[in-house]
Design a protein around this nucleic acid. Structure first.
Length: 267
DNA sequence: ATGTCGTGGACGCCACGA
């Protein structure tokens, strides 16, 4: 089975490109992030014409996550059990955002995740990001403990660069989000409960990235960040036969600012 | 100087988020 994750940065602006890519790469399951649309705006029919079923959650033009699968799509879950919400106004109750959707595809539990960006080290969004990751880790630990034989994949845009090798210039990110120690600690905490980055052994760095900012000619200058990950439970990791980052998909007009990340499994 | 994108609102540009 071929599983991929891709922050598509609007599913409507890139439907043709996404579908072309799915067919060309023979991908069975695609987790998407930043679909940037409400459920009723999602181009379900276009995916269904090609044999994919889609589970999506989108509440506004922000965020939005989906899983498209041609190998089954069962037990769809919107959000994880303890997923925190966000509110910039302390008087207003925090609201859940469209940042997590889970489904079982050919026996694999797949979670498509869009971790909060954090925005700035002293922004409420940064605290929200750390809390979001901590709650996800607690729930993901519980899932793996309850069913160790169940392959689980936590995939998506984590908005964290775990090591200095994962950014083009560590000094550039000092005082910014994505490379701060609390964020890196929150990311590494997943490995402490058994989830591992299954792509890195097949795509060693440094200088291997999944995201390049649209501005400043970051892509041609090879100034990117590695922030999109597939973290697999032990049962998932044991089935991985290969992985790659499709850097070519970042090229050309109409590309997302993220590249797809692909994992091949022996199921 | 976010210099690029994509979204929605009430436009024909602005605000917002990344």
């Amino acid at each position: 089975m071929r599983l991929a994750t891709w922050n598509v940065n609007s599913v409507r602006a890139r439907t043709d490109r996404i579908l072309d890519w799915l067919q060309r790469t023979d991908t069975d399951v695609l987790a998407m992030q930043e679909t940037k649309c409400k459920d009723e705006q999602f181009p379900y029919e276009r995916f269904e014409e090609l044999g994919y079923r889609v589970a999506h959650v989108g509440l506004s033009q922000w965020n939005g996550v989906a899983i498209a699968s041609r190998v089954g799509l069962d037990d769809v879950q919107i959000g994880f059990e303890d997923q925190p919400g966000f509110s910039k106004d302390p008087e207003v109750d925090p609201a859940l955002e469209a940042r997590a959707i889970g489904a079982t595809c050919a026996g694999v539990r797949v979670w498509s995740l869009y971790v909060p960006n954090g925005r700035d080290l002293n922004d409420p969004h940064y605290t929200y990001k750390l809390d979001w990751l901590a709650k996800l880790r607690a729930d993901a630990h519980a899932w793996a403990t309850a069913a160790p034989e169940q392959p689980i994949a936590l995939v998506g845009d984590w908005n964290v660069a775990p090591t200095d090798d994962d950014v083009w210039d560590p000094a550039f990110f000092e005082g910014k989000t994505h490379t701060s120690q609390p964020e890196r600690d929150a990311f590494h905490a997943f490995t402490e409960v058994g989830y591992t980055d299954v792509v890195r052994p097949h795509a060693p760095g440094p200088g291997v990235y999944t995201y390049w900012d649209y501005t400043q000619l970051r892509f041609p200058k090879k100034q990117g960040m590695r922030i999109d990950f597939v973290l697999g439970s032990p049962a998932f990791a044991a089935r991985v036969t290969g992985a790659e980052i499709d850097r070519n998909e970042r090229k050309g007009k109409g590309a997302s600012d993220h590249a797809p990340v692909i994992v091949d499994l022996d199921l």
